[in-house]
């Protein structure tokens, strides 16, 4: 009598995931089931090797194989979109304890996953500015582009030849965003610039004066001492699309 087809399907998928521990499905050829396993595994390994190309280079072959096999056999993928797998793999890398990965490799993997996410991001509807923009950038309200990512790492992960052994004195702060041509751009930020971006986001809807005043308080400097830095930074960010006109600016513009 034929086994229940649902049980056969479960056996088939179980074997593909973990042929070392799952029985060969009833009626199937063992060697050809191994072929299935290898084809499916290679498919997942391929997208991970491509996405994490640089961090992969810092992981020994046997350790990489163990990581991907463990991920493939134990982490259920609930998204119908293959491009979502790298994000799940990054979570797995950060949580797993089977293979001890150096911290800079984990941070590099997070950086590569962020690049992947930015490259693949869906379009979103940007908020519409409610008034025409004034001549002075300080007279309009701005917000960080919602698809940009503020990325912080102890290591200069965006540099191809960064050393895994040396911990730099300063962290690396980056703004990562896909541009209009589809290229993922990476902008360096100083600690003050990064903090101001966070404050601009928190004060979204207000002109930049409010967030700049808070930044000045945090830095313990007079706001007017930051004006030159702020004007240059705003101009660059607006030109690069890092900042976009905030929605609701008309109602909130007086807070500057």
């Amino acid at each position: 009598m034929t086994t229940d087809f649902l049980a056969l399907q479960a056996q088939f998928a179980d074997f593909i995931r973990d042929p070392a521990h799952a029985p060969v499905p009833k009626g199937c050829d063992p060697e050809r089931m191994q072929l299935y396993h290898q084809l499916f595994f290679n498919n997942i390994d391929g997208i991970l090797e491509n996405t994490f190309e640089r961090s992969r280079a810092h992981i020994a072959d046997d350790q990489w194989q163990e990581l991907v096999r463990t991920f493939f056999s134990t982490v259920p993928q609930h998204s119908p979109y293959l491009v979502d797998v790298p994000a799940r793999f990054l979570e797995f890398l950060q949580e797993q304890t089977t293979v001890a990965l150096p911290e800079p490799v984990l941070e590099l993997a997070a950086f590569e996953a962020t690049l992947h996410e930015c490259r693949m991001a869906e379009d979103i509807t940007l908020p519409e500015a409610t008034e025409s923009l004034p001549d002075d950038v300080f007279d309009a309200a701005w917000q960080p582009h919602p698809q940009g990512v503020l990325f912080e790492s102890v290591y200069p992960v965006n540099q191809a030849d960064f050393s895994l052994d040396a911990v730099p004195a300063e962290p690396t702060l980056l703004w990562i965003q896909r541009d209009d041509a589809g290229v993922v751009q990476i902008y360096y930020l100083s600690a003050a610039s990064a903090r101001w971006l966070v404050l601009l986001d928190a004060h979204s809807g207000a002109t930049p004066g409010a967030s700049l005043a808070q930044l000045a308080r945090e830095l313990n400097v007079a706001p007017e001492n930051l004006t030159g830095f702020a004007r240059a930074q705003l101009t660059d960010w607006i030109a690069d699309g890092v900042l976009i006109p905030a929605s609701g600016s008309k109602e909130n513009a007086s807070s500057a």
């Binding site: 087809f5 056969l8 399907q9 998928a13 995931r17 259920p76 797998v85």
Partner: peptide, 24 residues
């Protein structure tokens, strides 16, 4: 075909050739 059980495997597996599977 089927490409998932309770989770996706992102490739194609043959459906068992049974009458119950046809109905399903």
């Amino acid at each position: 075909s089927f490409c998932s059980d309770n989770a996706h495997l992102y490739d194609l597996m043959p459906i068992p050739f049974t009458r119950a599977a046809v109905r399903h």
